[in-house]
Design a protein around this nucleic acid. Structure first.
Lengths: 210, 210, 210, 210
DNA sequence: TATGAATGAGAGTTCATTCAT
DNA sequence: CATGAATGAACTCTCATTCAT
């Protein structure tokens, strides 16, 4: 009974997608529900049948969509990372980089929204932290622990810190490369080599001169 | 009331300071000229005698203020970095870290504004890039070149890349520590040691067993 | 779902009852069809199968419901008033007061709606006038005429005026007591005595010193 | 400095007057700020420089305006009532009636608003009670006490009750006559005589047959 | 007949900007 | 140059009403 549930869901999906787009382009505060509605090809009032306020759109769209996009990609990544026996720390890091890059090509607008709004809305911050923790950090730390015991990573580094170091290098690169200065000349391969070399060298125990 | 130039300038300074504060707290789009005016203890109309639009306030306040705050601190930092002969790459990196940390304690609101608005306004992005380039990057690269020739940094790293690697590690730490999760437990000393160790090891040429 | 006529009627009754409730609480303009629907446990659209517009709900609900609630109570009252031979004007007025009070305890929401909307909607005004006229005034006037001929009521008072005088005193008391200031301390018995004494004395022919 | 304060005040007065008008015609909930603005010949935004919300317009306009209209008239009335030595209770009541009637011709819209909104908004209710108490009731009760001691009013009536009885009779008449059924045929003089006779007779001590 | 998602006109409110003083 | 009241366009949100199911 009542309008086709599939259509209802499809409409909500269109609203969510449009919202992410507009939030990414304009930022939350400058985004208007009118524009979201028009991109979703939906009446403005329809948005408010699905979310009580504009802010609820932000929160309600970020969580589920992030899980839909990040979770599957993250688990693919982790299968690579954990499943395969990597030949070396470098090989592991290369795999991580490549995977992250694919992830970014899949869902950049939502990531932009996270970056833009995190410092303004504590809810977004916590959401991002939770999603990261659940989908990435846990398994990643496990992998790093494994490498510590193999002697690939210096045990003097706290696992959490090591994770942050890796993420700092790759994350900053992706943010600059993809969001801030996409028009600069980037030599991805060259940068990747240097980052991986640097990370591997930095994390591995000091080669004692023997 | 009075065209006294000193008063006029002082008023403008109050507007600028108030603007930065409000932009940092609410973000550009959610900031209101009314709040800026009230914090500056100035009539709303007065803002528009100094800037034609709200956006002009953002741009016009970011540049000069950034130069006023960042330039002096940056040059102090560079004098330390370039003037002193550091005993090692680690010593250099430690000095950089400590200096950056002081800088952040001095002017966090303006930095928050840069971070928040960079992805939304190309002008801000370019401004930040220019300021960084002029005040930090040039001299910093010089220092890095010097270390390359001393054999402290592996010449396989492009100087620009090396700079970005260092900034990635420290920058990400400061953003997380100061802006995103200031309430988590942070052991600054422990983290600093690990970051410096990691950076030094990662950048220095591989210790060839000899 | 089912065109079962009993269910249909029952649903309509639920809508009517819910409508009166909500109109009484919020006033017609601030009442929403959504709230009426939810209290009636009916879909919002269902309301519009029974009434073409929200205003039609008001009008269409007030008349029949008023007749259902007021008419029976009023006729009970009139039987008391007309049927019994009262010992005095006071006794008659006491009976009226007590009866009115019971009536008010039975159907206050609908009366509140009448009071609130009468000044705004001519239809409601006319409806109230008609119901009052048909169910109360006619018989009441008859009773008053009887008392005039018994010499209990001064013939100088027009019967309609006398009716209004009685209704003014009791009505104002009930509105203040029940609707406007229910939280004040009211000594109902004391007030009743005074009102009845006052009314009786005011209406009865001047006691000529004999 | 800044726009002429007299003009500002005049504009606010226009808003207040327009608000009362629209509230009286449509009721608070159905009144729109757009209509108030257009009648006041003011931009809609201007209303919100004077009042934070529409509800604040209601409250903020009712109080001062009521004091402006009711207080002077009430005091005039009271001077008549208290200053003059009335020849009889009837004379007193006639004076009251005439005075009230003038008051009603002066400010009916605002009174309509009070009547309409009192049952919906406790603030309005309290406001009305306060204004009535301060401007009318206190002095009126004094007058009634005086008449009790003169033997014009039966001391068995509580003064507050006597006040209510008088107000019930006159008030109900004015509401029906002016607001609810202005189009009926009303013989004001005839009604006045009857009300005054009725009130005087009802309140005065029973003429003991001697 | 009943449903309830969708609609869109219009509500109250905000705010950058203007301008008479 | 400073003021701050006024503006009105644009915003978020509400709600009676419609209509495919």
């Amino acid at each position: 009974m009542s309008p086709n549930p599939a259509q209802v869901a499809e409409r909500k999906d269109r609203i969510d997608a449009a919202a992410i787009e507009v939030f990414a382009e304009r930022g939350f505060a400058a985004a208007t529900t009118a524009e979201i509605a028009s991109r979703a090809e939906v009446a403005e009032g329809t948005i408010f049948r699905h979310y009580p306020t504009k802010k609820a759109v932000l929160i309600g769209v970020l969580g589920p969509l992030a899980r839909k996009i990040i979770a599957p990609l993250a688990s693919r990544s982790l299968r690579k990372v954990l499943g395969k026996e990597h030949a070396s720390l470098e090989a592991f890091l290369e795999a991580v980089f490549d995977d992250r890059q694919k992830l970014l090509r899949a869902g950049p607008p939502i990531l932009k929204v996270f970056l833009q709004e995190a410092s303004l809305h504590p809810e977004v911050r916590e959401l991002a932290a939770t999603i990261f923790e659940e989908n990435i950090a846990v398994a990643f730390r496990q992998a790093l622990e494994g490498m510590k015991s193999k002697g690939w990573i210096d045990p003097q580094f706290d696992t959490g810190t090591a994770l942050r170091l890796i993420m700092s290098i790759f994350g900053t690169y992706f943010v600059m490369r993809g969001l801030l200065f996409p028009d600069r000349d980037w030599d991805d391969d060259r940068e990747r080599v240097q980052m991986v070399t640097f990370l591997a060298r930095g994390l591995s125990p000091r080669q004692v001169a023997q």
